[in-house]
């Protein structure tokens, strides 16, 4: 019994340590600058200063940033899902000679550090005239992503061959098998890929740092960093902006947790 109490106490302590930064972020974002200076750590703000959020949104082209972010996310999600599904199908379900070598290459590229490719990629993108356009960030996703290809290939491999054979007998081509059979059967996996690409693009900081220079085109992640540079001393606004930026990801996390990974958490 005492052991049980001990571990519960320890668990509560651990949770407090992990949750505290988030709690003070939210409570700090709701404090007036005066209260924040006087009493930064109390969990409950005296009277919630929602105006911080209004002010944070007003101090930057928030809606513009948000719509840029959503465009980038949308473009990248489409690019990744389409390209990775196709490639994964080609690797998993089309019997051809090159696929083993190609799959080995896919896995190898996952291990390479970005340091080497960063500069040449920049040169490539600017030679293609994509610098300072959303395509600089979106276009590469149409060329597949090793991890997502790997993930989808694993999934496609589990589709029973008998389904595909049946499709073949019905006269479906490879494209037909892919589009009418594999894609509909793989919705959960495709949704997973889409979801994680969405979050990845939402959080992406270095893409815009390298490729975008017009504030009209900045997404939120980069806009937030610019905001830190301009309003570094106005903590209440910074916290409000950070909380605003975080909220959608947390919402997606909770929604997705139920949809995709509930099995693990409870098992």
């Amino acid at each position: 019994m005492t052991k049980r109490w001990g571990s519960t106490l320890l668990l509560w302590f651990v949770c407090l340590v992990f949750a505290m930064p988030l709690i003070v972020m939210v409570s700090g974002s709701l404090k007036t600058p005066e209260q924040l200076a006087r009493d930064p750590y109390s969990v409950v703000p005296e009277s919630p200063a929602w105006s911080n959020y209004v002010q944070a949104i007003g101090s930057m082209p928030f809606w513009r940033y948000l719509s840029n972010t959503l465009i980038l996310c949308g473009g990248c999600v489409i690019g990744t899902t389409v390209s990775c599904a196709m490639v994964a199908f080609g690797l998993a379900r089309v019997p051809w000679a090159g696929r083993k070598l190609l799959f080995a290459l896919v896995t190898v590229t996952m291990l390479l550090p970005w340091h080497i490719t960063m500069i040449p990629r920049f040169v490539l993108i600017s030679h293609l005239g994509l610098y300072n356009s959303f395509w600089a960030i979106i276009a590469p996703t149409f060329l597949g992503d090793a991890f997502f290809i790997f993930l989808l290939r694993q999934f496609f491999l589990t589709i029973p061959q008998s389904y595909l054979d049946a499709g073949r007998i019905d006269g479906l081509s490879h494209w037909g098998l892919f589009w009418h059979l594999v894609v509909p059967m793989s919705r959960p996996a495709l949704a997973t890929v889409a979801l994680f690409q969405f979050i990845q693009t939402w959080n992406d900081f270095s893409g815009p740092l390298l490729y975008l220079n017009d504030p009209q085109k900045f997404p939120l992640a980069y806009g937030l960093e610019r905001f830190v540079s301009s309003y570094g001393d106005q903590t209440h606004l910074l916290l409000a902006a950070a909380a605003l930026f975080t909220l959608p990801v947390i919402m997606i996390f909770f929604a997705a947790q139920r949809a995709f990974v509930e099995g693990i958490a409870t098992k």
Binding site: F122, V123, G129, Y131, N132, L210, R226, S229
Partner: peptide, 23 residues
């Protein structure tokens, strides 16, 4: 006018010149 606060105005400028779309 575009305010470029922070420390890497130069880097941003070089990237934009190399990228072909400078201010």
């Amino acid at each position: 006018p575009i305010a470029m606060p922070g420390n890497n105005l130069n880097a941003k400028l070089f990237l934009s010149v190399a990228g072909g779309d400078p201010p």
